[in-house]
């Protein structure tokens, strides 16, 4: 990225303006959620935030519980920086930033107990449901954490439980009417700091100009995960502001999620 573009975006930020559109510092780009992108998945969704496009899908299988949580199912959420999504991403094993993305999204959903893990227990200590949520980035126009988190939650919300045969094995390709048991809806909201301005939902050029990044994953009333990224820092006051704003922003996004089935 050229220094000229960088200076331009920094100058805009100083005037409380955004890079490509007229939105305010605390405004998200347009969020669109489409469900059922893969009919072979237990649940799936495609999320667009502006030009960023991500799809996520849920697959479930039966496994054994971890010894320390014999009555709880498991959830694993993962994804990579797919090379189809950005001219700078290369094929190959995931690097630092891809692993960070995957782990931040995973923590937000797992630690918040978005899914009621106790209801995913079939036989205590022996059989539980394993849920795999995989996300794929199709177009990177910035703010991948929020897009991947939102796509994963949307896919989980649409997921139906697989059918079991008489011996308790999964019947592939058949589902019951029962949905995956949900407890709360955690939404990641990412802020970046350019000079002394803090803005939400950065596009990829804004991300490159930012000195620091903060992702707040919150459900209804509590905060479930935090991740500070980038080499810069935030003051205590700035962190406080981000937390307050994230609950407000979350409300608008939850409205979009409510619309999907």
């Amino acid at each position: 990225m050229s220094q000229d573009v960088k200076n331009y975006i920094i100058e805009l930020a100083k005037k409380n303006k955004r890079n490509t559109d007229n939105r305010g510092l605390e405004e998200f780009r347009n969020v669109i959620i489409e469900s059922g992108v893969s009919k072979n998945a237990e649940g799936s969704a495609k999320v667009s935030i502006g030009d960023t496009i991500v799809m996520a899908g849920v697959k479930m299988s039966i496994g054994t519980p971890y010894p320390d949580t014999p009555n709880k199912g498991n959830l694993i959420c993962s994804g990579e920086l797919s090379p189809i999504s950005d001219p700078d991403f290369e094929p190959g094993p995931p690097r630092e930033d891809a692993i960070e993305l995957s782990r931040v999204v995973d923590r937000g959903i797992r630690e918040s107990e978005a899914v009621d893990f106790e209801k995913l227990c079939i036989v205590e200590g022996e059989k539980v449901w394993n849920i795999f949520v995989d996300f794929y980035i199709l177009n990177n126009a910035g703010n991948l954490i929020d897009a991947c988190g939102l796509a994963s939650i949307a896919a989980l919300k649409t997921a139906r439980m697989p059918k079991l045969d008489e011996e308790g094995n999964v019947v592939l390709g058949e589902w019951t009417d029962e949905k995956v048991p949900f407890k709360r809806v955690p939404i990641p909201i990412t802020f970046v700091k350019i000079e002394d301005k803090i803005m939400v939902d950065p596009d990829n050029e804004e991300e490159k100009c930012a000195s620091a990044r903060l992702t707040v994953t919150c459900s209804d009333k509590e905060i479930n995960a935090l991740q500070k990224g980038g080499e810069g820092g935030f003051t205590l006051e700035e962190v406080g502001n981000c937390l307050t704003k994230s609950f407000k922003i979350r409300e608008k996004i939850v409205e979009v999620i409510k619309g999907i089935k």
Binding site: S38, N40, A41, E42, S44, M55, G57, V58, K59, S61, S78, G79, E80, S82, P83, P91, F132, D134, Y136, L172, G173
Partner: peptide, 18 residues
């Protein structure tokens, strides 16, 4: 050319990656 089967594209989950 790179061909990638999305993990949830099939009824039985495909392991992500090549």
């Amino acid at each position: 050319c790179y061909y990638d089967l999305v993990s949830f594209s099939v009824t039985d989950r495909a392991r992500p990656g090549p």
